[in-house]
Structure formats: structure tokens, C-alpha cells
Amino acid sequence: METLTALIIGVLVAASVYLMLARNFMRFLFGLILLSNAANLTIFASGRMTPGAPALVPYGEDTPLGVVGNALPQALVLTAIVIGFGLLAFTLALAFEAYRRLRTMDSDKMRYAEPKEERE
């Protein structure tokens, strides 16, 4: 499954890079969401994938029975998902405010912080 996951990640990353390079800021946002999914999957797959054996210690045992899923990347991914959501919410708020103030979603036209005039 690692092979297939790697290919899926490749597709996700390629799509997210293409979206993030778009002028429309909303497409950038979509790219960001796909990228964070890809990143989470990458961490998960790097810890190897074990089907059907959650990382739990059964009642009455001291250690898990047999080979179970790698718990460490799971823990890392779990928090990464929640933080990814926070990042997305912040970026979305940024996009929304930018639109409300500048009336455009075209990142080339968002020149509030770096006005064109000053570059001459």
C-alpha cells in the first residue's frame, strides 16, 4: 500500500502546487488544503502502514499483541490535522478580509502591503 499511497501523494502534491500557483486566491486555498492532506499522508506512510491492527493495548495485556499500527506518526498526524484546520481557518479569514477590503481575489492585484509605485 505504501507504493499506492506514494503515488496518491504525488498526485495530491502536483495538484496542490498547480493550484497554489494560480492567481486566484481561492484556488491557493484549495491547494493549501490538498497540500496539508498530502503532508499528513506522507508522515503516516513514512511510519509504514499496517492494516487492521489499531495501536491499542488489549485489556489484561501489558503490551500490544502482535504487530500493530505505528502509533507515533498517528499522534503526529492527529495534531497536524487540527493545526492544519487552524491554519486553513486563519488563511480563509485572511482571504475573506482581503476580499472585503480590496474587492479582488486576484493575488497580483493585492498590492496593499507592497504597492507597485514603491518599486520604481
Binding site: 484546520f85 487552524g86 481557518a89 480563509l92 479569514a93 475573506f96
Partner: peptide
């Protein structure tokens, strides 16, 4: 944290 984001979006957008 999530509720403050969600409410803000609800109210301001």
C-alpha cells in the same frame, strides 16, 4: 478555538 473561528465566520461573513 474552533468555536471562536466558526462564530466569527458566522457573524462576519
Amino acid at each position: 478555538g474552533i468555536l471562536s473561528i466558526a462564530f466569527a465566520f458566522e457573524e462576519e461573513t
